[in-house]
Design a protein around this nucleic acid. Sequence first.
DNA 1: TGAAAGTGCAACCTTTTTGTTGCTCAACAC
DNA 2: GTGTTGAGCAACAAAAAGGTTGCACTTTCA
Lengths: 111, 111
Amino acid sequence: MGSNLARKREAYAPVFAALGDTTRLTLVAKLGKGEPRSIAQLTEGTSLTRQAITKHLRVLEHAGIVHNVREGRKSLFKLDPKPIDNLRDYLDQVSKQWDSALARLKSFVES
Amino acid sequence: MGSNLARKREAYAPVFAALGDTTRLTLVAKLGKGEPRSIAQLTEGTSLTRQAITKHLRVLEHAGIVHNVREGRKSLFKLDPKPIDNLRDYLDQVSKQWDSALARLKSFVES
DNA sequence: TGAAAGTGCAACCTTTTTGTTGCTCAACAC
DNA sequence: GTGTTGAGCAACAAAAAGGTTGCACTTTCA
């Protein structure tokens, strides 16, 4: 059904929003390398403070994109690819909806 | 190259952000039906004012997701699927990067 | 011509976001 | 033990986001 898109809209918006920031996209890219990284490591090379990075990580965590495990004194963050895959699928549905809408409109004009 | 992801990050963030709002996702879904719609039409059925919807449309327009053409006294908005397709491709790359990273890590452990 | 429909623009307000500093606390290394 | 490293928490400030109201301005149509 088409309402598949509507049903999940509210669930997807926060994930989009979480990725709607260059800093967080960079964090996702770093974590996408595979190895879990600590907050201190993720702060390295940025112009921001550790606390700022922590807040960004909490946003990503809240969106389900990353999750963290405490290991000794360090807090390791790891990427969870599922929400990202879901977003990709959602955008794919939007694309397909668009394509079929165009096809319908075209055949309507031609009839 | 892997830096493909890095190069486009800054360009993608605003598009993600534009989709990071339920109201705007709904607007995209409506426009995804194919026919261009006026601001008044897009306001119908929402609990928001026309001006609020206008602001949301400007955000989408600024991100390149929609563009508008003036027709008489009405301002018609139409979806542009390209930025959305690009986002999908971007997420696809992130997924693939993740998969290959896991494969590398796995073969490292096994060696 | 005059009313109604569709917009645009500006001012304003409230809430959220993004970032900082300062302090505390636990874990590791020596 | 003592110092250092990694992190959490709270208060604060600036900026951006999301929304409203009010008014002016075209375009359409009777």
